[in-house]
Design a protein around this nucleic acid. Structure first.
Lengths: 276, 276
DNA sequence: CGTGCCAGGTGCCAT
DNA sequence: ATGGCACTTGGCACG
């Protein structure tokens, strides 16, 4: 079956989806422009080719793909495999569509970047009038690990006292600065994922900066993560730094326990925030 | 208009898209399972909620969204805005769909990760029987900048001789090792984007390793990038390292010029590849 | 706006 | 499989 110009409206209470089956080039371009003006998303299924100029440049020859034009101006070209779009424009692009000798040309511009999708054949276009104001809640991030240690420093070691977070040195920001039970400064870098060599390099850069600032004072560097790979641990130890295993779930438990009783700010603000 | 169970087949020569308007829960689940068994992608438009457990955990409450089940097992939940899917499973997941008291439940598992999408209402499902074997060609990457310098070292400086690439030290891999006209070793780190502090830190780590290996020999460190931000340049200079502006287009021109006449390998293989 | 840095990063390629 | 690293990284927070 092949219907040209057949339009379906879906959604029981409200027109949530408007379908255009086998639209002509001009109709499809109109659909996209009309949706853009109403800040609605459009999906297009069909045969297209794509070119991109900007941070790099790329060419994608003819093939059947799914294109999504979103209400914020982002534009995604998806193949039938892979997590990532093969081509895209990030949010904020200006998207135009026009008919050109039987093809639909979608162009998107954003600063010095531009993308052009040419559809030789459109099987289906659909405009989405969607409602979606639900919040997205996530648990188990690095920031939460750090917060847990702020609340309960013993997660790292006994007698630790937190001084400040995001302490600035030339090479960047130290996640957490603390004092150990013997009065030594401790720079702590958190990683939510297994620590790699690059993470150790980051800590090395920070600690060497801190040592340059305070030559007489002993400064410890601690990498706190769920685990660490072998090469990274070797580099860490060779550089005189330490690893502390930090369990994500345990951090979450601590957060759950402390959150009702204390505010994070009251802890954080105790630390002096100077810049180095 | 609201059609239940109305099926359209789109594509003139071949059934490229099969549409299911307002499918029932069981029908929709069947469509997804059937597509999965044939390694075909499916898109689903409707009202859903999503939960994820794995590297972190997340909850996304009810809302209207676009879900893509791809032929490689990847699963994307897209809202009508934003470049990224709000929830997803990477390629390789096992995807199942079933009907459960009027809802469609899509679950995906991959190692210790799992995701669950519950559709309370499906406006549209579509199976994609797409052909797309075009290659994706990209120009202007960091690797190409490095190749250009291998062909024509003068892009960095006169008299430079390339020794080897991806030279391994404990902190990682040095993009390119070379000798300058005065016989000093030069470690070169390429960046396709404006260089940041983190990039300087990377070079610092490499050069300090190289200096530890060869204390008597003078070792230069060069960061080659289209540009460098202010803080990064300061850190670079303070660390006794150098910046070399490298224009992407010029690198591409050099590549275009040299590619016909010489093979990259003949250059690369001249260098000795030892490990440090 | 630039700068820094995390991300459920993903993807590619090396050992 | 693990590791190292680029990516049109995207995204957020902060000065």
């Amino acid at each position: 079956m092949c219907f040209r110009g057949f339009v379906l409206v879906l959604g029981e209470q409200r027109e949530a989806v408007r379908l255009f089956n086998n639209p002509g080039a001009q109709e499809c371009a109109d659909v996209i422009m009309s949706a853009a003006s109403k800040r609605r998303a459009v999906i297009v299924l069909g045969v297209c080719e794509v070119s991109y100029r900007g941070r790099t440049s790329s060419e994608l020859a003819r093939g059947e793909r799914l294109v999504i034009v979103k209400e914020d101006g982002s534009l995604l070209v998806h193949r039938t495999w892979g997590y990532k779009p093969v081509n895209y424009m990030p949010p904020g692009a200006m998207v135009y569509a026009k008919s050109d000798s039987g093809s639909v040309v979608i162009s998107a511009k954003r600063g010095s970047e531009s993308m052009r999708v040419v559809f030789h054949k459109v099987y289906l276009a659909a405009t989405l009038n969607f409602r979606d104001d639900s919040s997205f809640e996530q648990k188990g991030t690095e920031a939460q690990m750090r917060d847990a240690v702020v609340f309960y420093p013993e997660l790292v070691e006994k007698g630790l006292r937190v001084l400040t977070h995001e302490f600035q040195v030339k090479s960047g920001f130290v996640d957490l600065m603390a004092l150990d039970s013997r009065g030594r400064l401790v720079a702590i870098e958190f990683k939510a994922n297994p620590a790699k060599t690059a993470d150790v390099n980051q800590l090395i850069a920070y600690v060497s900066r801190l040592r340059a600032l305070s030559k007489e004072r002993g400064i410890r560097g601690v990498l706190a993560a769920p685990s660490i790979n072998k090469a990274a641990r070797k580099l860490l130890v060779d550089s005189g730094l330490e690893f502390k295993r930090l369990d994500k779930d345990e951090c979450l438990r601590v957060l759950e326990e402390f959150k009702p009783t204390m505010s994070l700010l009251s802890f954080i603000e105790k630390g002096d925030e100077h810049s180095a």
